[in-house]
Design a protein around this nucleic acid. Structure first.
Length: 557
RNA sequence: GGCCCGUUGGUCAAGCGGCUAAGACACCGCCCUUUCACGGCGGUAACGCGAGUUCGAUUCUCGCACGGGUCACCA
């Protein structure tokens, strides 16, 4: 068969030569060892938590080595495309510190290796597709409009589940072989009839033979050679992922491809295409799925509806983006936590990220762990920083509380946030803005309320007497020592023990201890059974509030 | 069903032929503390099973089991 002629039939429009294209995408001039990575999502919706994993690896690998990390939009499936998804994606990732040097950005496309949107690269794919036809490595498969319609509406997933695998494999193989046989005349006729064609690459592999391939995380893998013809172009002329991946990652000079493990089975296809094209394949890292625990206690894939799957959930719950990033880092490199403990003040980007430390097995999403990381992150922040982030969050997600905060001003809020902050061991009372909001509530009249009841065995008369005595003697000017002496002084008249050690060794002799007296005051002043140090709380809210809350409680009893 | 990947405590995980099998989270207990919390100390808890190689296997090989992925003109 005259492949040159076939190619000219299939691609009649004038195209640049492969060499011309290659010249436009020269090797990058980067320092030795610099990684070029990319995140290549299809714009089908919000960013999944699972998407943050490979992306963080992309970003670290590139920027740690002085390389380039770019964003390419794989919009080759018009059926699934969601409008505005790409923009939302860029914005969300930026929020988590993933900044792209090239590709699709908030301000449009930047970089010399574009376009970075696959739908704009049709001509480039056609150049290389045509070359494969000329070499006798690719052939067309024609479909009528009706058949195409069928392909478009068929629910392949459902179909595949109820298939007779063995019979199907044979039938598919036969059909594949049959498709390879055609004549130039048939092609001419089909084209004349206006039928569209998909372009397939001939598989030369032997499926019964294994080939060693390398994955940077998993090591040497044995995958069967590819013996299935590969769809390069769909009937609409748009490439499949397989072809686009090979062409784009070669031209854009990607050195490391980080992607989900669902791509592992098609790796032989990609390797075969790289070899057909005469290009050097990139290094691969296939990342396992993120799992979650279902109600029954078994592992399930973290799916779209799960809490925590949508990255926007974290914003809503008030996790600061750095907390999420650091959590991802701990999952990616288990020595990250140790490094963090030793380097509490360094930015996470100083951590020497190591691909070899990554785990080949999947990991389970653990909200507890996230909370712990979040507490660490927030405890290390300055009061100023916490205030800014919290206030911005409140404006959006808790506007009522934001206006409550406004009533007392910024400094007041910061004095609350400053409790236990700074020093070598800052307190870790809250890890999210939702938790901080709850922490702050007792400090504002609008949100103060008695939420907790006194412990069951507390004597109401004692409470009343204790509060009355407290109110009589309270002096805003006392220092912490004097203040506590006065609390202790309340004990004896009521038959409570002022000394905890004494009380513990001789509890029966007393009605209670200074701890109980403190609790009586605490609930009156903060409305809760737990609070930060009472003396500190009273001085933040001031004497007036303190005493009015105490008398309100006395009246209530 | 074929093929591929994976399997250390509840979770994330060190380990890479010889260890009392790290650490972190969670859980529990004790201590500190005016309570709770924070903090400190400690505890419960693991190499999926069966062969083989070896003086010796968590570590290497092979089966099996389990989990996951994949088998589209989707990515």
């Amino acid at each position: 068969m005259d492949y040159k002629y076939l190619a000219s039939l299939l691609f009649p429009q004038p195209l640049p030569s492969a060499d011309e294209i290659e010249a436009k995408y020269p090797p990058r001039s980067l320092p030795e060892g610099a990684a070029v990575t990319r995140f290549a999502p299809s714009p089908t919706g919000y960013v999944h938590f699972g998407g943050l994993f490979p992306t963080t690896v992309d970003e670290r690998l590139a920027h740690q080595s002085g390389g380039v990390c770019y964003l390419r939009i794989e919009d080759t499936d018009s059926r699934r495309e969601v409008k505005g998804a790409a923009e939302a994606l860029v914005k969300t990732l930026a929020h988590y510190g993933i900044k792209f040097d090239e590709g699709v950005t908030e301000t449009g496309e930047v970089g010399a290796y574009g376009p970075y949107t696959q739908s704009k690269r049709a001509k480039i794919y056609h150049v290389f597709a045509k070359r494969l036809v000329e070499e006798g490595r690719a052939y067309p498969v024609f479909s009528t409009d009706e058949e195409l319609e069928e392909i478009k509406t068929a629910d392949k997933k459902a179909e595949l589940k109820s298939v007779d695998w063995e019979a199907d494999a044979g039938a598919r193989r036969e059909a594949m072989l049959a498709r390879r046989n055609f004549t130039i005349e048939q092609v001419e006729q089909e084209l004349a009839a206006g039928h569209k064609f998909a372009l397939f690459a001939i598989a030369e592999g032997d499926g019964t033979r294994k080939r060693k391939v390398n994955d940077l995380v998993r090591g040497a893998l044995e995958l069967p050679e590819n013996d299935e013809d590969i769809v390069l172009l769909k009937s609409d002329g748009i490439p499949t992922y397989h072809f686009a991946h090979v062409v784009d990652d070669h031209l854009m000079r990607t050195t490391h491809v980080i992607r989900g493990e669902e791509w592992l089975p098609s790796l032989p296809k990609h390797l075969q295409l790289f070899s057909y094209m005469g290009w050097k394949p990139p290094k691969y890292i296939h990342i396992s799925q993120i799992m979650r625990l279902d109600e029954g206690g078994s592992k399930k894939k973290l799916s779209k509806r799960d809490m925590g799957a949508n990255l926007d959930d974290y914003s809503r719950l008030g996790y600061c983006p750095l907390a999420v990033t650091e959590y991802v880092m701990t999952l990616l490199n288990s020595n990250y936590e140790e490094w963090r403990a030793q380097n509490p003040d360094k930015p996470y980007t100083d951590f020497p990220f190591n691909v070899k430390k990554m785990s080949a097995s999947g990991c389970l999403f653990d909200l507890h762990k996230l909370d712990d990381v979040a507490k660490n992150v927030v405890s290390r922040m300055t009061a100023d920083d916490v205030y800014k982030q919290f206030y911005a969050w409140a404006k959006e997600y808790a506007p009522d509380f934001a206006s409550v905060v406004d009533t007392m001003g910024e400094d007041y809020a910061k004095s609350i946030i400053s409790i236990g902050r700074g020093g070598k061991k800052p307190r870790r009372d809250y890890g999210t803005w939702v938790e901080l909001q709850s922490f702050m509530k007792p400090f504002y009249d609008e949100t103060f309320q008695v939420e907790d009841d006194y412990p069951e065995n507390t004597d109401l008369h004692d409470i009343k007497s204790a509060l009355e005595m407290f109110a009589e003697t309270y002096d805003d000017g006392d220092d912490a020592g004097a203040w506590f002496e006065k609390i202790k002084a309340i004990c004896a008249p009521l038959g409570y023990c002022a000394d905890m050690k004494e009380y513990k060794s001789n509890a029966d002799a007393y009605r209670g201890s200074v701890a109980d007296i403190s609790m009586m005051i605490r609930v009156a002043v903060t409305g809760r059974l737990n609070s930060p140090d009472l003396y500190t709380v009273m001085h933040i809210i001031g004497a007036e509030r303190t005493l009015s809350r105490v008398s309100a409680m006395i009246n209530k009893l």
